[in-house]
Design a protein around this nucleic acid. Sequence first.
DNA 1: CTTGCTATGTAACCTAAGTTACAGAAATTT
DNA 2: AAATTTCTGTAACTTAGGTTACATAGCAAG
Lengths: 254, 254
Amino acid sequence: MSAISSLVDHEQILDSAQACPAESASQNLHIKALLSKYPALTEDADAACWNMLNQAKLMTVPADTVLFHEAMECKHLMLIVKGQVRVYKDSPEGREVTLYRVEPGQLCVHNLNNLVNGLAYPIMAQTETDMQGLVIPRPIFHKTLEESASFRTYVLRTLTERLSHMVDLVSGFAFDRLDLRIACWLNHEFEKGCGKPIKITHSELAQELGTTREMVSRILKEFEHKRCVQLARGKIHLQCRHTLKLVSQGQGKK
Amino acid sequence: MSAISSLVDHEQILDSAQACPAESASQNLHIKALLSKYPALTEDADAACWNMLNQAKLMTVPADTVLFHEAMECKHLMLIVKGQVRVYKDSPEGREVTLYRVEPGQLCVHNLNNLVNGLAYPIMAQTETDMQGLVIPRPIFHKTLEESASFRTYVLRTLTERLSHMVDLVSGFAFDRLDLRIACWLNHEFEKGCGKPIKITHSELAQELGTTREMVSRILKEFEHKRCVQLARGKIHLQCRHTLKLVSQGQGKK
DNA sequence: CTTGCTATGTAACCTAAGTTACAGAAATTT
DNA sequence: AAATTTCTGTAACTTAGGTTACATAGCAAG
């Protein structure tokens, strides 16, 4: 079991949040700074959208907090300003798969699902780092959806993008061998971090991809033998980008 | 390979469609009849939504027509009136998984993705039966999204529902054994058809679930031995609902 | 009735993935 | 420094799923 602190009640979080009351237009600058990672949202934002953002409350959540879980209803939409949230599904046998990560510039679409359809969905979300987010109460969310074209576009885009991402996940599970999936994941991470070593343990990577620690250890060792990566405790170093790419494309199958 | 007729160009389809020009308010009745399976769309439809529906063209597509495919852009939204469309993903090795089916009352969310984000997504869609649909050109779709609250709600709902469905798919692949997935699928189909025999071949069922014909044959035979079902050429008969349910819940594992 | 096509059955085999069960290394705490 | 916890490595084994390779059955057209 990974380190999980206590489940936090949303209301409590809100009460203890550093409230930013809705105020003048100069407020926009402050909010805009917070949302610097949300160009898709703020760049063409109309008045209704700014109105919503100005009513949002900034809140801080420590790392490893469970934000919502199986069958929990959410009362707010959250725009993440700093930090990241992992959204995952767990199995009765104690395994996990990461569905996606919510980072600054994105919103949790299952949170959305909840707000739009009113039904809770058995899925988990947990902060991986200390997190700051802007909390938008449900009624304001709905009102803004009515009034703001720019917010609507943003929401629709996000939803459809996640959907495409989900299809990729499905097709990975259905068609790709585990070593390919791991190689792709590594590739992607190294790309994102410009080749910086990835900080992750084997069992975390297993939870990421819905498999077991032993499988990950085994396959990573293979990769090390092929000289794509170099392993260290809690870290994976990139050795040869090219070889890794080949492996992730199914070349050099064995 | 299943029977696939030729790929049809959308423009051509439209030209040969039985056009229903936008007209008076009496037209509403006609459209409403066509959309009887879309209560979520028509019940609370506002004027802007009706306006869109009245501009839609009714079109007919024969069975086994490829509606869109890898990297094809779509220029219209389609509301299905009669028949069904299978949306699936295929692998380089020639396997397939069904992602979902679009039936009357629903719309193809990948079609949506395309319309909203403007980018094509590598996915396939094909009519399984003769189909009738209302075609809404892209500009009208966007305009209505702006103007009609009821249409927006409908679109958002559909999207988030599909998303939940995708999570179920992922979690099935990640955690459930093939026999469970088959049992669940059968269960669901029998439920839908009130116990009527399911018309499907083993290799179609394999394409449904992203596996191979031999696996399906093997597992269905097991089920027959357990007396949940009875097999016939191209058909699966329900024998004991209770036993099937047990199997689909992972009871009677072996 | 024969030919041919499609669907199913099945055995033998192979391979990917998961499991069990440790051992030992690296970090962290006491 | 010793003790403890957290990671990693790995071998042996099991099982699920996929593959190959046929055999046979049902159906349909000529």
